[in-house]
């Protein structure tokens, strides 16, 4: 999918744009997919990103960008339909399956995705990753959250502070 520049060969009429990651990798994608990003949409409407120019994205590295584009390409057709009127239940189920799979990633990637989705203003992706993290937090005690999110062990001072804090916040506990 998000093939670097050379892998192209799409004869269809779909307009392509080139995005350049922070580490200078070029990605060529359909304008429709890239336009899921509010940030890019205007540039693309103005005719940017075509030809040899490319749109530089100094905030997004190639690994993250390829992941982001994977999402955009998958979601572009549904977005083009203005959401769903034509979408069949099968299509929706497929998208859902894709989404679930998509966020099964380790935390550093998740973090990069959150930042990228925010910077590029991709609404659907922002909600998806936020929900993923919320699910990691929900229904857990603070200790379990610390383990899930991989917090370092607190220093003794920090632990003491937290204990005091917990006393003060007694109303939020049993």
């Amino acid at each position: 999918m998000a093939a670097p520049e050379s892998g192209d060969g799409n004869n269809g009429a779909a307009r392509m744009v080139t995005l350049i990651s922070s580490d200078n990798t070029r990605f060529e994608v359909e304008a429709a997919a890239a336009s899921l990003s509010q940030t890019l949409q205007l540039t693309i409407l103005d005719g940017g990103g075509g030809g040899g120019d490319g749109i530089p994205l100094p905030n997004v590295d190639s690994a993250t960008l390829s992941k982001v584009l994977e999402y955009c390409i998958k979601h572009a057709p549904a977005a083009a339909n203005g959401g769903a009127p034509n979408a069949t239940a099968v299509d929706r189920a497929e998208l859902e399956r894709f989404d679930n799979e998509f966020v099964n990633i380790d935390q550093s990637v998740l973090y990069s995705l959150i930042m990228a989705a925010h910077n590029l203003e991709i609404e659907g992706l922002q909600s998806l990753v936020a929900k993923k993290v919320a699910d990691m937090i929900k229904g857990k005690s603070p200790m379990e959250i610390r383990r899930t999110l991989g917090f370092p062990d607190p220093t003794p001072e920090e632990q003491a502070e937290m204990n005091a804090h917990m006393l003060e916040y007694g109303w939020a506990y049993e």
């Binding site: 929900k131 229904g139 603070p142 937290m162």
Partner: peptide, 20 residues
Amino acid sequence: LRILVLVPLVEVVRTSVLSR
């Protein structure tokens, strides 16, 4: 915060003891 609004309020308040 965008993440935390998706979590029940009581649990969000309890995140305050996670770390400084």
